[in-house]
Amino acid sequence: MATATPAKPTPTLSFPRPIFAALSPHPFLQAHLTSTPNTPLRANGRTAQETRPIGVNTDALTHSHGSAVVRMGNTVAVCGVRGEILRAEDAASSSGSLSSTADSSDDDDEGGEEEQNEMEQLRLLVPNIELSTGSTPAHIPGSAPSTLAQTLVTRLRALLLSTHLVRLSDLRIAYTPPANPDEDAEAQEVQVKGYWVLYIDTMFLALDGSAFDCAWLAMLAALRATLLPHAFWDEELETILCSDEPEKAARLRLRGLPVPSSFAVFEGSEDGEGVEWVLSDPDAFEDSVCRESVCVVVDGSQGKGLVRRVEKSGGGLVDRENIKVLFKKGMQRWKEWEKVLEERK
């Protein structure tokens, strides 16, 4: 074959695309980013700032109180929220202090200190992450939860608690004893008879980068869709009953809309010299090549942009000024998320 084309000496060695990517991932991504200097394109065809479109579908699961399927490119997560009743006498903390705070209004947008503590101590929110078989090549089915899954759960739980997303008053099952004509009306106080515990299970059907963003979006969409039946204390049976009338069921009133945006930082050369690229919404291949990652969580729902969380680790390429730029990008992403989630209402 080679003898038939004597015109030009062909390049000594060339690989097809997937082999190049598998053999030397770092030069592969670098070749992509440097081949068109004006508009650097990544290996997946996106520009550095471009994110993947978000698709959200809610109430797909019938046996949960709220559910959502979220798709961001090839990352797909399903989240189901299931409420279970925790009776006050079974709760771990002392019940004496609980009844006194039961009537305190917590309709403000900032969760109180006690509310936060109670929520955390009673573990009323239980997020969990599962990777389904075949979702990612790195996942070995049948083994204990991987470091990735455990890290994700910790981050999700920390964000869930620190943003005060769920109101404690929505989860409390309160009971006001009927007014006794002999007694002063003031003496009637609201008693907490139980709590809703929300089990928030997220399963990745496919995992292609930005796992935290996708899991959080699935959780947020599922919590927004959650419809808890009306639970009440029945005096005669002395137990908590749930009403089966659909019009009495209530949605959760979430506080704000915190939106995470993940970024991966790709250094120009492996020695850390040269230019770096900050890639928005990285996929699994970019995640594996990039050492440094940044995740900012912003909330623009109260008019002014508020930062709820910053996570950055793995290197020193992104400095203070860069992170401020990422806050702005996070706000743009927030608008996208808000649009998608409002459509589902």
Partner: peptide, 24 residues
Amino acid sequence: SGERKLLLNESDGAFSVNEWDEAC
């Protein structure tokens, strides 16, 4: 790092960009 590069940042709570900048 020794070269004044920001290696790690974990921030939690509710804060503005300026507050974060001041803390940094």
